[in-house]
Amino acid sequence: MRRAAYRSSRLGERALTAFALLTFAFLYAPIAVLIVFSFNDSPILVFPLSNLSFKWYGELFSDGDLLRSVANSFLVAGGVVPLTLLLGVPLAFALDRFSFVGKALFERVMLVPLIVPGLITGLALLLVFTQTGFRLSLVSIMIGHSIFVLPIVVIQVYARLRRFDRSMEEASLDLGATRVQTFWRITLPNIKTAILGSALLGLTLSFDEVAIAFFLTANDNTLPMHIWSMLRHGITPQINAIGTITIVVSILLIVVSLRLLETKK
């Protein structure tokens, strides 16, 4: 309601709207291209388009390496999510409930992996793993991904905890619930959506990650690493089909996770 009071001028508003629409077109046209080409019959990517076809999708399901890489990606993400939740939720809890020396510094340092390019995180872990004789495997990729998923979980859960009215916990204790009962019955239900939302974000991010995995992959490729190697061997229309599926699935997951992370007013 208040918002209406400050408005750009008519002309300015139109110009901005036009600009924004162009920008949205710029953001989504490439994705549309990917999708459209995935249904194009022709084996080479040329304009104009030929017939509608699902054959590239069909081929995906007979590609053993590809299917294995998808399974690997699920394994990695399936490890990253519980790991980061197990570490991140208590950490967010500690940050919310306790003050300690260097807390502000810790909160900043914790976020560094979000700003540092993935290849640095990847090669840094690679160096440590090789020096300590830790064999590269899906576990090493999992650890690599956890380093940037962890701060995301902590940010989300920490923000939710800060909004959570602590007198509700006191009311629960007052009514005879122990601290453990209070956590399960009162605290957890109130931060549940933040936990689920960040878990889904972690899942999609881990699923799409390529730079860290690039350094930490041994023999088992994740899906993005498999795509990467396909790209090095030349473009095939299959990639468009994989791309379409991953992007559609990602967007579905994002819709769900944003719903969960949304602030309830």
Partner: peptide, 21 residues
């Protein structure tokens, strides 16, 4: 939502698609 959705979709594929373009 339309602004932030690309943040969470495959970086690799969104780069690759420019090759097609």
């Amino acid at each position: 939502f339309l602004v932030i959705a690309p943040l969470w979709t495959s970086f690799l594929l969104r780069v690759f698609v420019w090759k097609l373009i």
